[in-house]
Write a protein that binds this DNA or RNA. Sequence first.
RNA 1: GGCCCCGUAGCUCAGCGGAUAGAGCAACCGCCUCCUAAGCGGUAGGUCAUAGGUUCGACUCCUAUCGGGGCCGCCA
Length: 574
Amino acid sequence: MNIFADIRTSIIETLDAMVADGVLPANLSWGNVAVEPPRDAAHGDMATNAAMVLAKPASMQPRVIAEALADRLMDDPQIDTADVAGPGFLNLRLAPVVWHDVVAEAIDAGASFGHSGLGAGVKVNVEYVSANPTGPLHVGHTRGAVFGDALASLLEFAGYDVTREYYINDGGAQVDVLARSVYLRYLEAHGATVAFEDGTYPGDYLKPVGEALKAKVGDAYLEQDEEVWLADVREFATEAMMDLIREDLGLLGVRMDHFFSEKSLYGTGRIEEAIQDLDKKGLIYRGTLEPPKGKVPEDWEPREQTLFRSTEHGDDVDRPIKKSDGSWTYFAPDIAYHWDKIARDYDELIDIFGADHGGYVKRMKAAVSALSDGRVPLDIKLTQLVKLFKDGAPFKMSKRAGTFVTLRDVVDQVGRDVTRFVMLTRKNDAPLDFDFDKAVEQSKDNPVFYVQYAHARIRSVMRKAEEMHLDWSDNAKLEDAAEFAVARKLAEWPRLVEIAARNHEPHRVAFYLYELASDFHALWNRGNEKPELRFLHEDDPQATAAKIALPRAVAVVISNGLGILGVTPVEEMR
RNA sequence: GGCCCCGUAGCUCAGCGGAUAGAGCAACCGCCUCCUAAGCGGUAGGUCAUAGGUUCGACUCCUAUCGGGGCCGCCA
């Protein structure tokens, strides 16, 4: 149930009736008629712009339409008052029964309150993290992991059929570098002293991999040429790194449905097939690119390459898919990968990239547009940088990786729930300052705590109510403005889910939960001034049951919202 | 040079084309005999970077300019 949608339906039906009665001309479109919460609650519970958007096409004064509409809406039992305001807004005040119903429905529906039919029948693939299998996940990956995971959960909640996917870049030169680095650790495990030159990964995390390799092959690869061991070590090391990454994701509570290997595209003709598909569409040609303007590389020389005519699909320049030596660029397997996703029959694709991949967005969209003939939309979300702070200073060190802060470092510092929530307190395209001290601080300027505290308070009250053996009725008794404010906020939940899902913006859930918690804490304190508004009434189980329904509904929504964010709602604060 | 993101209160940030632009922090003033004061209420604080345009209506959409960040063939 989404009461905004309900009321809109009622308004549309009324408008239809007005057309039938000749009050409004025919052939009007209701597409722009919106029903939304007013900015100022003093204006009422809901507002519609119907009269204003229809005034021009109907050639009528907005206030005339608004008044006629208001008059008829009074027949709707859900609507108490309808007032024309300002340039032609129609402010509606809803009957108390509407809010009582919202509370009852939240309690009855429980974990499914807020579910939506928005995504019914839509298959969507969310690709995120996709870090190179060359080391542990770092902070940047953490943000992408949390964002992607929360977005996937949000879409599921809104009814989409979601696949969570990780693209393993195990086909490029970086895995050779990994293999050579592991080989050095292998030599080290045999007692050799090794030097990590430029172009190798010096991190300590490869030590156990070197030892594991020794345990597996003994001294078979000692004093052997690279061609003897490279392929095997590459395989071995990549698997070890993916185990490490899976472990890191586990720390965050992220589970992928599918890991897709780039390597599986090579030697199987699949890259060739994907490129042929583009070729058939006349989008592949041999050519020479212009050097980039402004900052021309010193060693620039024009070379003929195989190019993808991405400019046909909105890109700024055509992009190379083969290097001058004839081998594939990294773009080619990426094209094949997305071609594969399209072939798997997804209706929508979403990619989560780090901000440093911003320059890659247009060509990827161009490729998907070309491969699917514009049928499959690809949305690419970029997650901006995370700056870590501790004791007021930037936090940079990592014992494990040597150079960068790992996902594990962050989760060790503040825990999974805090990490996830904090990462979602910004829009994905805004940089994020992550302050370890603030994140674990127990005060209202820490949103994680603030929302958790509201949930814990409610659970505490419910535990006390258990002892009263009361009849857990769903019927709330609402009388105070603070109570209606909370109920109104609860009613916004299903609508918020749809807005957040449609825009691919899970951070809206985090902000909403903060607002809901705030309304709840305000209500709690109203009990100081008006004892009859408290939730527990000793020796009066009936009054208690009537008052406790509202906080129960709040707990349901907080729990559902935190569930989308992947944060566990706590039962008590400690 | 081109492309992408950002510019909103002193600070950190919300704001699906709607009304008098919101929250937290910091400042000031209040509230515990009471379900968790780990909380709540109030005061103060704004040329929404700038200039045009579209619209009944623009923080929101378009164009240009300024400022900050990122990216720009044979690295992924």
